[in-house]
Design a protein around this nucleic acid. Structure first.
Lengths: 234, 234
DNA sequence: GTTCCGACTTGCACAGTGTTCAAGTGGCTG
DNA sequence: CAGCCACTTGAACACTGTGCAAGTCGGAAC
């Protein structure tokens, strides 16, 4: 039995926990080392970079996703399920979105998921080119939703972490935002009749609404052939 | 005439330039001070925080966007134009996406644009609730696309900034990514027949494809009434 | 025309960051 | 027991955002 030594998995696991709890800027090599009961610099033997560590953590999280059988139901429900799953993953790990916008991610987990997604769209009858675009559009839509959610998530975390001063700052910012919004007629009516938009404005409902609209649109493409590429302009 | 002193606008302007050139992590108070020929800490008299500065810069950029007349053409082309404009803005300022996922943005520029967007959808015949959701869905889709583009943008910037070592690192990462992808059948075929997917895989074309699909789906909602909210479960 | 105030600037300092590197430690193999 | 090799450590460097006391200067008041 070797002396108890760090492993890459331990490190990645701890990193994910820390990222979930504290967000991307809450992860520092020193705090990570503290959580692992070792010097911060010990991590560098197992992992090249902090960037690299985040990449590893991100790809690890991708493994959480289930890969439903492409033939188990009609393609729309499987596609919707996968999209909602993806959305859930981003919701559980808000730092993922930030990581995604800062670095190009690749790796085992994401590749596995990407491949399966393409399988679903191809099984639905999309040509491989169409499947590419459809999958990209849906993924992109999910990512956008997740980005919005991540923003508010970071906000509430800052709220719970900071003391009363942070809360007061937020109050001030909200007041300022409302003051601005009141000067624009449509934003104003939305502020003044919150009850009506309450249900519809919930992020999950908005996500579902747009997702169905997007899938509707993609379904139409199923019967329409690819447009010819435009002639190259010289 | 007062002695030449910093103004908030000067600072924000310089910050935007720096952000465009160097990205979000390239902006430091010291480099900003250097560009403004003043001490770094002088900025703190005009601006509360670095976060606050980024927020100001982000909102400033929002002012670039044109607000097309809601009645000048059919709603789909105006909506598409605005979405493409938005996408262009994000493409010009990749750091914006990162800022968006890290903080909740609000402010004059964004409010102005949001209000006008709602005007377009309401003029198209959407109820105010539907307009909310439609606008949110489109914005979200654009944001997602921008996030993907921002990732590759940061990559190419790191490439041009760093020396040959950075380039070699990228080569290594690409090789590793390909090695992984080759183990998944659908990803593999896409790697092996790049010519076929070349035109379709361009980010702009993918953006357009998904956007039209989404608008198709939203258009369908125009003739369909809102679904009733589910009964509150007690 | 001197004084004085307040808008603005500066330099220093502090705590924290990622990362490098020489030096150390301990278990396994010869 | 010797030696190697996997791993760990602590000190150090250059850098970050930010608070604070001390400065500097233009214009208004007397």
């Amino acid at each position: 039995m070797p002396r108890d030594t760090l492993t890459r998995e331990q490190i990645v696991h701890a990193a994910v926990e820390l990222l979930d709890a504290e967000g991307l800027e809450g992860l520092s090599m020193r705090t990570l080392g503290r959580r692992l009961n070792s010097a911060a610099t010990a991590v560098y033997w197992h992992v090249k970079n902090k960037d690299n560590l985040v990449l590893l953590a991100a790809d690890h999280v991708w493994g959480e996703l289930a890969l439903p059988d492409p033939d188990s139901a009609d393609w729309r429900t499987t596609a919707a399920t996968m999209a909602t799953d993806l959305y859930g993953m981003f919701a559980r790990h808000p730092w993922l979105v930030q990581a995604f916008t800062a670095h190009v991610l690749y790796g085992e987990g994401k590749s596995r998921h990407d491949d399966h997604t393409l399988a679903v769209y191809e099984a639905a009858g999309f040509t491989s080119g169409q499947a590419d675009q459809a999958a990209a559009a849906v993924f992109t839509y999910v990512l956008g939703n997740a980005a919005g959610a991540a923003a508010t998530a970071s906000l509430t975390r800052n709220l719970t972490a900071g003391g009363t001063t942070a809360q007061e700052q937020l109050q001030g910012a909200m007041a300022q935002a409302q003051e601005i919004a009141m000067r624009y007629p449509r934003l104003r009516t939305r502020l003044e009749t919150p009850a009506a938009t309450d249900y519809a404005a919930s992020p999950d409902h908005a996500f579902e609404y747009g997702l169905q609209a997007l899938l509707d649109g993609l379904e139409r493409q199923l019967s329409t052939p690819d447009p010819a590429p435009p002639a190259a302009s010289i």
